[in-house]
Design a protein around this nucleic acid. Sequence first.
DNA 1: TTGTAAGCGTTATCAG
DNA 2: CTGATAACGCTTACAA
Lengths: 335, 335
Amino acid sequence: MDNLKDRVTIYQVAKAAGVSLATVSRVINKQGSVTASTREKVEKTIAELGYKPSGLAQALATNHTTNIGVIIPSPNYVYIANFLSGITQIAKEKNYNLTLFPTAHSRDEALEMIEKVISSHVDGAIVFDDQLGPDDIKKIASYNVPSIVIDNKVSAEKIGDIRFNYDEALRRFILDYYEKGGVAPMTFLHVHNAGRLLARCERIFVQTHEELNREYKVISCDDSYTRTYGDMMEYFRDHPEARKGVYIGYRDSIAAAIENAATDSGLSVPEDIEVLSLVGTKYSQIVRPKLSTMHIDMAEVGKRAMYMLAELLSKELIDKSAHFNATFVKGGSTK
Amino acid sequence: MDNLKDRVTIYQVAKAAGVSLATVSRVINKQGSVTASTREKVEKTIAELGYKPSGLAQALATNHTTNIGVIIPSPNYVYIANFLSGITQIAKEKNYNLTLFPTAHSRDEALEMIEKVISSHVDGAIVFDDQLGPDDIKKIASYNVPSIVIDNKVSAEKIGDIRFNYDEALRRFILDYYEKGGVAPMTFLHVHNAGRLLARCERIFVQTHEELNREYKVISCDDSYTRTYGDMMEYFRDHPEARKGVYIGYRDSIAAAIENAATDSGLSVPEDIEVLSLVGTKYSQIVRPKLSTMHIDMAEVGKRAMYMLAELLSKELIDKSAHFNATFVKGGSTK
DNA sequence: TTGTAAGCGTTATCAG
DNA sequence: CTGATAACGCTTACAA
């Protein structure tokens, strides 16, 4: 608990080196001018004492930590992990540390994390939580925490956003299917509380079908490979009429569950059943047939977010909005 | 709430509520005694002003942040992401924030991150970096940062460790193969710089074979699915003698690359080629045939690490070492 | 129950 | 070039 008790302080260094606090501070910050000889002396005693400046005290004095807060659903999903990994790379490059505020897909928790972000005195934040609406985001803005918000349009002074666009690609995919003579209805796998991204895709799915005046199905599934695999096995067994058509899952695990369940039910993909994954990762490549996906490179999104934030923090962010368009990547799971 | 505001301080709250700093502090910390009426008054003005205590200042005053530092290779790999996810869950439960110090598989960087951890004033640290040796870890100990170290034996006052044991399971797997009449040599896919865990497995692999006086192969591969898939396609094409036997990859992506390359080369798994993944994740289940793995649940490891650290921070950690034994999980990729 | 004041470990502004 | 000293925002004895 009081591991910090015996921390060597700048004061001790000063005393040991026979100089004042201020001089030591100048040495460690390499600013202001110090004689070569005293600099050496100070550096020597710093090394001897093993002194490391307290980031905390520095932060308090300078009014900036070099921390940026990251609000994300827990990094359990590959696409979130990829996103985080992208942030990570650029953060390192720009010399920021990352503090995680994980939210487990619940709005209340996300809100609570926003409070924490504010308290934690981060220099900026990247918010990728699917549950938060624009109003929630404004709160963070009102506290003057420069932020990049993912998949949420916000316009505020110190806030940039990155938005995903699945609309056209998904619409086109659906239209193509019917234009090419698709007859069996498409099925969308709904996952409870999986966030705004999925919700929007589902809306596009429904709308497009209603415009076309086509039949469609939405079925609910659990947000896990194993459960969905089991459920789909049953589903294909109990619903002979469902043994054809296109199935859409929102991420690779779900889509893979559909595909494997279909295959293991004696169906062939893509001849009988076609499968599409909305958030494709590299795991779409390892299943057979490879999954067709709507692809957005989440690591790139993470990098971009961190670049934008760094710009927001250092100068003016010129372009406060970035867009990532999903592109259809054809695998073997669709015709 | 609308306009950007400068940080509201405890002092401003005190003034607005007509009380002293100390009283406000008591209210926000719910300790000491405050009359119901003044408490209300203070709470009201806190709400009105939108005051959030500065974690920084609190940390400096109390001498502990509620941050714990996590040194990991970047969360690109599923097993690392799972580990992080496990930490995350328990950290939330115990009310700690996580600060990430990602290292990208290089010892120098890992060392640099240790420095940062020390400066950053975290209450404790979880160190899962495969590149660090025991001596490196001691450095963190010397700064009195209570830590849990993964896959590295350390004995120091404030340091606990979690170790993996692949030895027996892997040895047994190899022995079984030959006892059951395996003839074709086993092949181990070596990945440069993939860390101590892999290195140790490789050592076990080699040793066991030498004890048995059996032929074996070690081939190098890139740490990526796509590259390894391509390389293995070539390999199977150019080396007819290699179109049989057991192949061992250190994580699912690598093992899946072997398996898919074998299948796509017209080989059948497990009849011609058998495949084993050393660090199995749920992705071993989605490829066909399912991968046999040596399994350690990394999310559990993360949880355990965080539990141990919490204990280390609050009282005495009774059991300073935990062990996780790899268990062989048979899939369809081995006979 | 409440207020005063001394830290916590730095940086930064002045003088000297 | 160097040294006092006042911030930074909060906690916490100690007094009142």
